[in-house]
Nucleic acid binder design. Structure first.
Lengths: 226, 226
DNA sequence: ACCTGAACACCGTTCAAGT
DNA sequence: ACCTGAACACCGTTCAAGT
């Protein structure tokens, strides 16, 4: 038995970029952004902290790789859609649901740069916008509007989810929207007069449907001016 | 001479929430998110790290207070505007410029919750939307659309700015957009076929004007359906 | 080539002790 | 009441030493 086989015995899988990123995603899902630690990761992989550095440059690169994997999976089957507007819808909802399932992705997407997870979304949406028949001059604006919307709403949702889990330990969306509505209703009557009146709409709010409605609106606007 | 006076002698100002938050903002502006350290802050205030904890609960609270001060200042004179649509424009551009001047604010705004900097923006925009004559049923959607847009574009800009400063050390906006365009043009020809064609528009892109155009579009849409 | 785990230089936060 | 600064429990990262 080689020493490598002996090591492979102690952990379930061989150590590799892929194994490490998978374990990182699991850790992030379970314990949030603060839960990802080289020590915790090493323990879960039955190895030393330093071993991870042979496969991954540093923590930032690991975070990017984890985000990239989640997003790549989320937009993978958007290519199957026939119509260009279908593709846009599929990418949008894919990213929305991915952030909902992995809230830490929201904060990450607003961060990194080329070639990054965000750029993949940009490219995918861009090709669809092209197919939509938008003129070259209008493409940049159309794509950035869509991507900004998707990332903006996504990170806001993620922030809410993280906050709800941290401060009110509300696991599902309906419950944390309700808890947030309660917090809004309790705000100062003068300083937050308007926000208080929005507590009721917030409680009944279906953010996924609202998100999709926004996408429809923007797509319609793009097609109208195309 | 009292001991308090002697201490006040060693530092320029008395230690207080305000002094601490001011020093924190300066530190964040100069050295970025990673530059804010209790030790660095203590040294700058000529005191011990522990002293800060008498005035501030923890680092997170300090970050919220710093963000709150910047945002409060940015939207302060938006109340002077006569027309409701003017107020919306003033808030939007105020937040945009504040994030441009203090990139770390972008990441912070997407984070915290009630009563937080983001809620102040929500309240201010909300009152303007009310004045615009939007029906109660339409207010929630109108306000969240605007706030999402403002925060989404803002944090994206901030991320770009942080990235440009870290990786290309480009200080001003035109230069980092140009550097980013260069990076886009160098992307893989197959995988990023669309993104590469957007390098030229990106280079000539005026993000502030584009941001304002988006606000106009949304406001027009709200007024049209109001 | 790949892994180990101790060591280094840092953090945020606490707290007994001072004034 | 307010401040001091050492101490604690952590980090990310490196690296000599192993296989």
């Amino acid at each position: 038995m080689t020493s490598k086989a002996r090591r492979a015995d102690r952990r379930e899988q061989a150590l590799s970029q892929e194994t490490i990123v998978n374990a990182a995603i699991r850790l992030l899902d379970e314990a949030g952004e603060g839960g990802l630690t080289f020590r915790a990761l090493a323990e879960r992989l039955s190895t030393g902290a330093g071993a991870i550095y042979w496969h991954v440059a540093n923590k930032d690169a690991l975070l990017v790789a984890a985000t990239d994997r989640v997003i790549s999976g989320a937009i993978a089957d958007s290519a199957r859609a026939a119509a260009a507007s279908e593709t846009i819808r599929a990418v949008a909802i894919g990213v929305f649901d991915a952030i909902d399932a992995h809230p830490w992705v929201g904060a990450q997407l607003a961060r990194a740069q080329p070639p990054s997870p965000m750029l993949k979304i940009f490219e995918r949406i861009g090709r669809a916008v092209e197919r939509l028949g938008v003129s070259y001059a209008g493409q940049f604006s159309a794509v950035t509007t869509l991507v900004n919307y998707i990332l903006g709403v996504g990170s806001q949702n993620a922030a809410n989810a993280v906050h709800a889990k941290t401060h009110w330990s509300q696991p599902n969306r309906r419950e944390f929207l309700s808890a947030m509505a309660g917090a809004w209703a309790a705000l100062d009557a003068d300083e937050y007069a308007f926000t208080r009146t929005m507590a009721a709409p917030l409680r009944e709010h279906d953010d996924r449907a609202h998100f999709l409605a926004g996408i429809e609106l923007i797509v319609a606007g793009i097609q109208h001016s195309a």
